[in-house]
Amino acid sequence: MSNIFLIAKLDITESFRSRWFLLYMLVFTGLVITFIFSGITDSRVLGFSGLTRLLLLFIQICVIIVPIFILVSTVRSINADRDTNLLEYILSFPISLAEYYFGKALGRIFVIFTPLVFALLLTLVTGVAKDIEIPWQILGFYTALLFSLSIVFLSFGFFISALIKNQEMGQGVAFLLWLVLLAFMDLVLIGFLMKSSVREDIIFFIALINPIEVFRVAAISLFDPNLAVIGVASNFILTNFSTMGFVLYSIFYPIVLGVILLTAGYFIFSSKDLV
Rank of each mutant, 00 (worst) to 15 (best):
F28A: 01
L71M: 01
K165C: 02
I109Y: 09
K9V: 04
L46M: 14
M1H: 13
R19H: 10
V259Y: 02
K165W: 06
L208I: 09
D42E: 15
I138V: 15
L54Y: 03
D83P: 00
S43D: 12
D81T: 03
I251D: 04
S15G: 05
V45Q: 13
P67A: 01
A174H: 00
V214I: 15
F192S: 02
S2P: 05
A207E: 14
V259F: 10
A129D: 11
L10I: 11
S242D: 02
M194Q: 15
G157P: 04
I65W: 02
I4N: 06
I268R: 07
G191K: 13
S196G: 06
A228D: 13
R76S: 14
A219I: 03
A144N: 07
L262I: 07
R17T: 01
F21R: 04
A218C: 09
T123V: 11
I7D: 09
A8W: 14
R44A: 13
K130D: 12
F141G: 01
I230A: 06
L31D: 00
S197R: 15
L116D: 06
Y142Q: 13
S77E: 10
N3W: 01
F37Q: 04
F16R: 02
F21K: 02
L187K: 13
L10E: 09
L139G: 04
F153Q: 01
I61N: 00
I95H: 08
T52P: 10
S271C: 09
Y24E: 00
C62D: 10
V275Y: 08
G103Y: 12
I40T: 14
T263G: 03
L57H: 07
R108L: 07
W20G: 01
G39V: 08
F205V: 10
I212T: 08
I237Y: 06
F204R: 10
L97F: 06
S38Q: 11
V125W: 11
V256E: 03
I12S: 07
M1Y: 13
I151C: 13
N210P: 07
L26N: 01
Y249F: 15
G170I: 05
A129M: 14
S155L: 09
I255K: 08
G107C: 11
V27Q: 02
S161W: 01
A105M: 13
I40Q: 11
S196M: 09
P225N: 05
T34F: 10
E14S: 12
V256Y: 06
S18I: 01
Y24L: 04
P94M: 08
I33S: 00
I164M: 04
K9E: 12
L87D: 07
L177F: 00
I33W: 00
A183L: 15
G140T: 10
M244D: 04
L51F: 07
V32L: 03
F236T: 09
I40W: 04
V256W: 03
L10Y: 14
D11Y: 08
S221C: 04
I95Q: 06
S155Y: 03
S155Q: 09
W136D: 00
I61Y: 08
L222S: 07
L71D: 00
V125P: 02
D42N: 15
T84L: 12
N85A: 15
V198S: 10
V45K: 11
V45G: 04
I138N: 10
I40R: 05
I255F: 10
V32M: 04
F158W: 06
F37G: 01
